[in-house]
Design a protein around this nucleic acid. Structure first.
Lengths: 188, 188
DNA sequence: GTCTATAGAGTGATAGAC
DNA sequence: GTCTATCACTCTATAGAC
């Protein structure tokens, strides 16, 4: 018997891609074992709470990645640099629109009630962090809030339409528009 | 025995609400029978192809509703009036953000491949119809395209965030912003 | 030998089809 | 209601690290 040893972070990343492609309900345990090559034994070893546990750990992992790479820089760093970093991070994380937002997808289907507080806090923090950076960069509070909301809405909407249209270019165009709008507001 | 006679359009509307709330995978046949009060016999009478047939018929029904109420007016009617009608229709159809876009939700999960051409054509026609109306209202072709794309992206993004944040106000704010932006472009 | 991680057959429940 | 397939999940056996 060949024994392949996995680490939990690897397991989280592998399972995350399956949820990302199939959604929570669509990702059956047998599909997860087939696609990840992790046996049920391994999966239940890493995630004793089963499927719900997997989804919760994956969301926590995504959330903490965004906190480190995007939210904390926006909250604490030099605002203009942090905002520029946000556009780049967003583009590369979502692979220019080819990768869906798992948390956004969970917000729309049956899963939403189970994970509602994690979903809410992720989007809330993103909007607040960006609004804070825009305010520190010189925008009035209300304008900063509105622009931040618009940016996160635009990113989510572009991800939906990129999938819906099978269009690889719409996400980049939308990001570019949002970036221009933010820059125009900051030089005024 | 009380025999309630349903018509197919009623069945479509009833089942649609279940899909809207639970997603395709989340809506099990037993949940559908429980929530719609339609027996399995009735369901298979109306939808011989089962669940997939239901989803296809529902999407076709939604699509044709949008064609009549929104796309054709945009394509053929007086453009400014049709655009104003679009904002109102959008707000009321999505119940100010409390109702999800079923076609957008289907675009994100496992369902996407099964219905990809219906999903693609719905969003494509929406963007093209709006872009056409904006062009007829006087905008240059490229600006009309960009603004139309931005509007549909914004609507989808706002629907996602309304769900994600449990916020009833974000959808209205976003619609208002999009409307203002379109009006500003048209008076320029 | 002990212990932990893995493999995967086996469980009852429930799915969708008819 | 009945059917079979598949669901999420359990459990035992065992491979490999020490």
């Amino acid at each position: 018997m060949v024994r392949t040893v996995f680490e939990k972070p690897d397991a989280i990343a592998l399972v995350a891609e399956v949820f990302r492609e199939l959604g929570y309900e669509g990702a059956s345990m047998s599909e997860i074992t087939a696609r990840t090559k992790l046996s049920k034994g391994s999966l239940y070893h890493f995630f004793p709470g089963g499927k719900e546990d997997m989804a919760a750990e994956i969301m926590a992992h995504i959330d903490s990645w965004f906190v480190t790479e995007m939210f904390q820089p926006l909250e604490e760093g030099e605002p203009r640099a942090a905002i520029l970093n946000m556009w780049e991070t967003t583009d590369s994380y979502f692979r220019s629109g080819r990768r869906v937002c798992l948390i956004g997808a969970f917000a729309l289907d049956e899963t939403r009630d189970r994970f509602s507080s994690a979903i809410r806090s992720y989007f809330h923090r993103w909007i607040e962090a960006l609004a804070g950076a825009l305010k520190r960069a010189g925008l009035p509070r209300l304008e900063a809030r509105a622009l931040a909301e618009e940016a996160v809405v635009g990113i989510q909407g572009a991800l939906t339409l990129a999938r819906a249209l099978g269009d690889e270019t719409i996400f980049g165009r939308m990001l570019e528009r949002l970036k221009k709008r933010v820059e125009a507001a900051l030089v005024r």
